[in-house]
Amino acid sequence: MDTLSLRNYFAGISPEIIIADGKQYLEITIPGPEFHDFCARMKNDDDLHFDYLISLTAVDWNDHFIIVCHLTSTAHRHTVVLKTKIDRIEAAIDTLSDIWKTAEYHEREVYDLFGITFRNHPDMRRLFLEDDYGFPLRKDFTDDERIITR
């Protein structure tokens, strides 16, 4: 589907989602509690059929996190960006690994680098760093011994 029909489709799904146009891809922001179900719908719906999760990552905006998912459909060849806002103190959201298997490992990486836990994840462990290291990609992270800031 092209961008306009996708936009109209999504606008019809739920009034709470925010759709941003004028960007490289269609960007949809969904409130946290509905994120998992929305993603499941994105995958299972035949017209949308977003079966390939390109990347799942997080961005730290100082007082909240935003989880960013880039999705594309192998059948229809359309791409969207899904976003959701996560509170900084209580950084947790439902896992997407039951929808896309690759999310299991992207989420582990996000947990490792940002400290965002994913509920119901089959294996919520850190991926690269030791267990007692902080969460380096947070903006307020400092490590005086090993990181030199200019």
Binding site: I54, S55, T57, V59, D60, V68, H70, T102, Y105, E109
Partner: peptide, 28 residues
């Protein structure tokens, strides 16, 4: 597939850059 995701806030350095590397997904 390598994907580069840059978030910029107008500065001369990126605010966040993410590399979606092919080997990461291929490994698991």
């Amino acid at each position: 597939e390598l994907a580069v995701y840059i978030v910029s806030n107008g500065d001369k350095t990126p605010y966040r850059i993410k590399f979606r590397s092919p080997n990461f997904s291929n490994l698991f």
